[in-house]
Design a protein around this nucleic acid. Sequence first.
RNA 1: GGCCCGUUGGUGAAGUGGCUUAACACACAUGCCUUUCACGCAUGCAUUCACGGGUUCGAAUCCCGUACGGGUCACCA
Length: 474
Amino acid sequence: MNKVRTRYAPSPTGFMHVGNLRTAIFEYLVAKHNNGEFILRIEDTDQTRKVEGAVDFIYNTLKLCNINIDEGPNNKGKYGPYIQSERLPIYKEYAEKLVQMGKAYYCFCTEERLEELRKEAEKNKVAFMYDGHCKNLSKDEIEEKIKNGEKYVIRQKMPKEGISVYNDLVYGEIKVENKLLEDQILLKSDGYPTYNFANVIDDHLMGITHVIRGNEYIMATPKYNLLYEAFGWEKPTYIHVSMVLGEDGQKLSKRNGDASFMDLYNEGYLPEAIVNYLVMLGWSPETNDEIFSMDELIKIFDPSRISKSPSVFDIKKLNWVNAHYIKKLDIESLLNITVPHLKEAYDLSDKTEEWIKKLVSIYQDHISYGKEIVEVTDLFFKEKIELNDECKEFMSAEGTNNTLKVFEKEIENIKEWTVENINDAIMLTKEKASVKGKMLYMPIRIKTTGQMHGPELPDTIFLLGKELVLNRLK
RNA sequence: GGCCCGUUGGUGAAGUGGCUUAACACACAUGCCUUUCACGCAUGCAUUCACGGGUUCGAAUCCCGUACGGGUCACCA
């Protein structure tokens, strides 16, 4: 049996939304589950869409996600080059081979003629399809036209009757009528192959055994198979995966939220958490577990359990998964995903490293992504706090004024500003004002933080600093 | 418009003819715990699997039709 090989084949657009990433993860998992290899191939046959630095961007993203590339543009591999624009002669050779075999033909039709055909089709309300005008040109005619410098493309000859059937690992049997298949272009007039053609050639030449891609290719797959058959090549296993939708149930776009991996990453979501969440989106393991490391995923991943229906990207669930990973973070990593956001939002110049470290760590269990640290800590960075109605109501309770007065005095008496001494001050207040529980902590919490919830009070007060606390108590 | 695919709670989903009076998780609500929040625990949240028929002793699961949603019909990938 052949070694399992899968590939991720993005266009270098410099942007990767979570749907693409999920496909890459699935491809990686299928390969590694079978002890196989994962290949990165850059599909840049559309020169107009090329973006500078996109390849590095892709490498960077995959690396962050702990997806290891076995072969690719920046790796060694015996099937290279791995960038399609560097493989042009190969496609030309195979396209011409196809012509010789009578499975493809030269087409000299101009844009104008095609445009007219298209208009005609529109007028008659039928789907446009190339009419095979150049299909039966004689050898002499072809040579003549080429000699005259006429531009040409190479088109694949499609059967006009019959039905094509193939088996998809997640969708099952797919049948498409052959008469619906257009004589598609294989080689464009600029000498570049079309995506469809380059894809088949490269997948075969690179030994790809499992083709995993979005289900927008379901209908085109019979064309791929015809190519494999024409060359007498073994067809790969097809695994089409459904789409990831935005919260509004529509296709993901920049409009409906943070659809891109980098956006999420920059907001302080952890790559492991994103990967974990994405795999569970439209796929489920046999057990009820939901938190998996990459190694565990590799062990248990079974592509036949991928769901056929599209799934909605749910940021709330991602938050939950991410919070789970954040809780387990060591302090350095926690600092990495939070401090940059703090620095951006607040002036930290008078804060010590120790202070920042402590601030971040008391909120470790309270945030679900790095940037959330900003909103949750704003009480440390403003002079005045305003109380909402709920707080005001609580403050109007009997005895709170006295409690606060006592507490203020105890704070003033503190010589050395430590968490322990602050805790002692609270305990002394408890005795002297003879209040306890909620009636003790709540007035202090509200008056010093402006909120009814938060981390341990002594820690919070410690970080606020004596001066600010005293100011707020007045 | 033709063709293809899909439809289980707000979300992700399990379920492949009887064990299902439909798991589990997120979200939400309530209670317990806690100074509070979070954590943790407990409880509630689809009398029902888009709808209508059919097959069967029995259907979310099989078949047909309808509705809705999406995809596809490029010298884009």
